[in-house]
């Protein structure tokens, strides 16, 4: 059944290096990855293995140096700056370990910001952001600044923002890393719900076994390549 569905993420022979003080450091070396729409995949591996680099490349924050990366049918290597910005607006949603909320904006305004960049008119932005905040259980906290929210609540706002433009791919980098167990559970539950209800594929980078245990597939990144954990 799985083989019949075209993957939303297709990576072939991805290689990436960084320039270090003592020369080039290979991070990804001929990495292959297929992720089907609506899949929940966890990426694990030691620090510095290249998990975050892979996420950055899939999210259009960095360009692949070698190999091919296709997300939702787009070859990221061929996209220009505008194309990549459009990719970040509509194809992927980011969830950060540090939540990445704008401190001066309320929860609602933070969610609206993603809709603003996507060109959604103000009325539509407001309705969609309130709907999303209600989905993550923060309907009553829409007008609160991030500083007035707990870590778990801030991360839920972050998830609402990532889902704002209904992206087919959700990229989450250690989303529970800064949270207590209970809040972490709530966040993982939300990611699961998003996958189920919005149909988006979730690629979760984590160090936590508990978080990885939620995924359908757990892949370990070692020596620049992925293999089943």
């Amino acid at each position: 059944m799985r083989g019949e569905v075209k993957p939303i993420i297709e990576v072939r022979g991805l290689a990436h290096r960084y320039q270090g003080p003592a020369g080039e450091i290979p991070v990804l070396a001929g990495l292959d990855l297929d992720v089907e729409p609506g899949a929940f995949v966890a990426l694990v591996g030691p620090s510095g293995a290249g998990k975050t680099t892979l996420l950055a490349i899939l999210g259009g924050l960095e360009r692949p140096q070698a190999g091919s990366v296709r997300v939702a049918g787009h070859d990221l290597a061929t996209l220009g700056p505008r194309g990549l910005a459009e990719h970040r607006r509509r194809t992927v949603g980011f969830v950060f370990q540090h939540f990445g909320l704008m401190e001066a904006l309320t929860a609602r305004e933070n969610v609206e910001l993603a809709l603003t960049f996507a060109g959604v008119p103000p009325r539509g932005r407001r309705a969609r952001s309130l709907e999303l905040l209600a989905q993550v259980g923060l309907a009553g906290r829409a007008d609160h600044l991030p500083g007035r929210l707990s870590g778990g609540e801030q991360q839920r706002v972050g998830i609402a923002r990532a889902l704002a433009n209904r992206p087919p791919v959700l990229l989450a980098d250690e989303p529970t890393g800064n949270l207590d167990d209970r809040s972490g559970e709530q966040v993982l539950e939300l990611l699961e719900t998003a996958r189920r209800e919005e149909g988006c594929a979730v690629l979760l980078v984590t160090h936590e076994e508990r978080a990885a245990g939620r995924a359908e597939r757990v892949l370990a990144l070692e020596a620049g390549r992925l293999h089943a954990a």
Partner: peptide, 16 residues
């Protein structure tokens, strides 16, 4: 820096 990065990651272009 982080704010700028987050804005770009949610779709802001250089022009924005």
């Amino acid at each position: 820096r982080r704010e700028i990065g987050v804005m770009k990651s949610i779709g802001a272009g250089d022009g924005d």
